[in-house]
Design a protein around this nucleic acid. Structure first.
Lengths: 209, 209
DNA sequence: AATTACTTGTGCTTGCGTTCACATGCACAA
DNA sequence: TTGTGCATGTGAACGCAAGCACAAGTAATT
């Protein structure tokens, strides 16, 4: 097949995990192919949008028929670089940190949290889900373990120093759950998830007037 | 002062909680006024963007000086309807649910989770943070309690039915942490946060080639 | 009063993302 | 082989958002 080389827009990349998830579950439900219309209803995206998104990385559909779910899933995995297991470290073994370690959804994309850190001496040495909590001072071992992804679930005032330490330990991707902006070198990618911020918009949307 | 009445773009609304948070913390640090440049650096947004965003709801700045932090915070609170405490219910007292109940960031915006539900008989009757876990079958009491916001932290396969029950109980805003698309009547607002989905984009950004 | 230094508010340009609408192409049946 | 039905792929139009660049306005100083 002739491979197109269009740039994939950022917004499309943002939707790819959503698509991949949908495809995986459709497969589990026994489907082998799906139309953009049906799939759109399934994941909550306009069908035109879906066709355009898919078209950025080739012609995977068959006119009159639909898309081969398996082929599509493999392709999206390839684009997102999810073909191999990705190890991640989590810093901050509090409530949110514990919840994320136990979060079942991470498996689907091939993530494995293999290291957990905290600065609380009462927590260090204990285990969460069979993973020993290490002293945050020992973050340096991430380099040896070749872990490139860090998840920050520490209190707001410790977020920046934690990020600095992660960068120093060779991490190039940070998922930040602390409600603050953190500064990193240009070669490091930060995605901040401000949970409370999402909730904060709710009254605006649901209040009349 | 003459009040402009421009439509506030959705993307601006999305940033308002971020701004409000920044302003609150600047106040705590003792600042009374701030320039768009400084504030931009503080929250990680371009200064033009900040000026434009603020301009949608009036002229709050003073040329040559900057913005009055207190006035601005009050205004943003007003727009987001965060002037009064908002009660919310949480369904699904698992790891993630527990973490969110204990999440300190919700206070800042004036949210209070006053009801928790689960369908697990082992959990019903127990308490999380002084809040008794109720049987999800009793969701109807939300109407009496006048709770309009629901937070879904149940497993994927129970998300849609939970949403249906919430809608039936009079909820008009749903914050959905289950990794799936849920269907609700048009008058109900859903915001879905797919935690794993954010992480799934990371390898794409950080992997060379 | 005039000068300087500074910062806002905004018109305009540019770029990006979404959606429409239809030509294109495939599969199947007669 | 022809016709029918269906669903993709995409050019084009539209709409929204971001960022530039500068006029307008304020404060402080001389």
């Amino acid at each position: 097949m002739y491979m197109k080389h269009k740039r994939i827009p950022d917004e499309t990349i943002r939707r790819l995990p959503l698509y991949l998830r949908g495809l995986v579950f459709l497969l589990q439900e026994g489907h082998l192919s799906v139309s953009s219309e049906k799939f759109g209803d399934y994941v909550g995206v306009n069908s035109s949008q879906i066709r355009k998104d898919f078209s950025y990385f080739g012609e995977f559909g068959v006119r009159g028929v639909g898309y081969d779910i398996r082929k599509l899933a493999i392709e999206i995995k390839g684009i997102l670089k999810l073909n191999e297991i990705h190890k991640a470290a989590l810093i901050g073994a509090g409530n949110l940190g514990s919840a994320i370690i136990s979060y079942p959804g991470l498996q689907l994309y091939g993530f494995d949290i293999t290291a957990v850190f905290d600065n609380n001496t009462h927590k260090i040495g204990k285990k969460i889900r069979d993973i020993e909590i290490l002293d945050v001072a020992k973050l340096g071992i991430l380099k040896k373990k070749n872990i490139q992804i860090g998840i920050i679930t520490v209190p707001r005032n410790a977020a920046q120093e934690t990020a600095d330490a992660l960068v120093k330990a060779g991490v190039t991707g940070i998922l930040n759950f602390s409600p603050c902006y953190i500064i990193v070198p240009k070669n490091v990618k930060v995605i901040t998830i401000d949970i409370a911020g999402y909730l904060a918009r709710m009254p605006y949307y649901i209040t009349a007037g």
